[in-house]
Write a protein that binds this DNA or RNA. Structure first.
Lengths: 341, 341
DNA sequence: CTGAAAGCGCTTACAG
DNA sequence: CTGAAAGCGCTTACAG
């Protein structure tokens, strides 16, 4: 069944014996139209349950009032909080949001950008897939429509980017461990450095240097995908060393939770013997025992700011200067590390 | 900045010195057009990076190729798996998906249905907000556009509904507890009975009756929202009884996890003294220790089936008979209950 | 094999 | 204060 009962301006005009133009103007509260007419039109429109066709409206104005969003994976809790922020902000400004998942596949991502253009979106919010090697498709898209990168970004794209202070966040996590007396801090990161992983690693290095702690390659571990499984595996590896670390900084909560599970299995006291810090404050971070110390990423704020800025660019008359907007994170200290006091 | 560089049929036609009609037909591989012309058009279209305006295309055909989806909360892992299924299936059929959150607010839900219509979606997939008392707005929407209910449904709406077998799933969870020797099984459910909660409760009752176990009102507990906090609180309440239960069936994983936390705090052996079963197989169900026995809801499948069916209805020439499609769930036995062997 | 024209629902200069 | 007409980008009967 296709759509039915579609009332248009035409029907209202016919019924009232006026022109379509008049009905349109009346509905849009044009000053030229008499109050009388406006009232008649408004009342009939209401009775007939007239719903303006935004589609037709936008057609003329070359606008769809739709924002396209592409994310690697909608299943991550963090991503869903960002989407919430985007949707909320878009709604306030009268935009709807089309969502697509690139499933961390560069080719799909390129196709999706293309489809977004076909659908005539007014702007695009993109979080890059992990395997994005070439940004050509993104650059090409940028020529057609305002585009803004968030979370997983690339400096190769000259557009506004909304990111969290990964480096600073990692620094504060590691600094926290140092300040609570830890000296031999392992890191679990990604093998193939994504932007996020690289920044977090840099923050880790800076913290060690700042506090004059020697960097030990043997406790810098990486894995392809930083899952709970791999967190366990790498932690087991750390536990097999003669000189064990006294803290583990995992760049995702999943890996940190894997680490905790591994430590518990080996009867290591957390945080006394080995403390653990994760990243992203996922739901599971308060399910695991001890509760996980982690970095809270304000996904909602990222979404709101990204949408806000995109909308600003969409409505600007001139090309705005691309900026990098950094959203602050918070270290949440829980039981997997010592309280600093 | 608004959109730029938009190549239309007009430009191609002008450049080639043919009519717009010819270009349109050539691009659509119309049999009337000569191979020669088709090739010229195709090649120029490619060079100019012509992107067909689906918007204009749909405008004529009264189609947008957009499916609207409204869910209570995009943040639930289960919901994200359903959305994945919907998006994947929609994509296959050339549809895009607009997502909105009702945040369990009936008024917002009604507004969103209205907005979906304004945006001219070709069909709507709706999971009702918890507080949906009146379905008037849904019924009204149904007059305008194909609509299908999934997960959180209502029998008051005469449309196709895709649901999981809540009653059967709960039955199998409780049966499992009984078969592993449990006799005094408490349930943690919702106070204000949502469709899901009610069905799960009925399954619980049926299992007890089937196995001739007396129903004891004192261990049937409810709370407004079945969070981890409330799971803890209600479990503490159970532990304060003279005769304690030997198993707890919580109708959500969160509440089940709260229950486990409370039991661990009281040094109760799980599952020996008290077993716990949850519902939904969330990410956290394998984070908690012992790992949670729970019901896996195939969200992806629900999404796929819902989208499939909606698309079928959208393209049907006659009104299809509404059906109720029940998706099977699976009990996943983990360490929070005994293995049945 | 190709083109001119109408039309999808709406807005908006231009006339009156 | 109101209407006729053009136009957004496309498709498709109707002619030729």
């Amino acid at each position: 069944m296709t759509k039915k009962n579609v009332i248009t301006l035409k029907e209202i005009a016919k019924e009232l014996g006026v022109s379509i133009s008049t009905v349109s103007r009346a509905l849009n509260d044009h000053p030229d139209i008499s109050v009388e007419t406006k009232e008649k039109v408004a009342s009939l429109a209401k009775n007939l349950n007239y719903i303006p066709n935004l589609f037709a409206k936008g057609f003329r104005a070359h606008k769809t009032n739709i924002i396209g969003v592409i994310v690697p994976d909608i299943g991550h809790y963090f991503t869903s909080t960002v989407l919430k922020g985007i949707m909320r902000e878009a709604e306030i400004h009268g935009y709807k949001v089309i969502v697509s998942e690139s499933i961390n596949n560069e080719k799909r991502q390129a196709e999706m950008l293309q489809t977004m253009i076909q659908f005539g979106v007014d702007g695009i919010l993109l979080s890059l897939s992990r395997t994005t090697i070439s940004v050509d498709s993104v650059l090409k898209t940028l020529e057609n429509v305002p585009l803004l990168l968030f979370d997983k970004v690339s400096l190769k794209v000259p557009c506004t980017q909304v990111i969290i202070d990964d480096e600073e966040a990692a620094f504060s996590a590691v600094e926290h461990l140092i300040q609570t007396g830890k000296k031999r801090i392992a890191i679990i990161k990604e093998t193939e450095d994504s932007y996020n992983s690289k920044m977090r690693y840099l923050g880790y290095l800076r913290a060690l240097r700042t506090y004059n702690i020697e960097i030990d390659e043997s406790i810098i571990l990486s894995s392809e995908n930083i899952s709970m499984q791999n967190g366990k595996r790498l932690t087991n590896q750390l536990l097999s060393m003669k000189v064990k670390p006294d803290a583990i900084f995992a760049i995702t909560d999943s890996a940190a939770i894997g680490a905790i599970k591994s430590l518990k299995r080996s009867k290591i006291k957390i945080p006394q013997q080995i403390a653990v810090v994760g990243f992203s404050n996922s739901n599971s971070s308060i399910v695991i025992e001890p509760k996980l110390t982690t970095i809270d990423q304000p996904g909602n704020k990222i979404g709101v700011v990204a949408a806000q800025y995109l909308i600003k660019e969409m409505n600007a008359t001139t090309q705005l200067e691309p900026k990098t907007i950094v959203i602050k994170t918070n270290l949440i200290v829980r039981d997997s590390s010592f309280n600093p006091n």
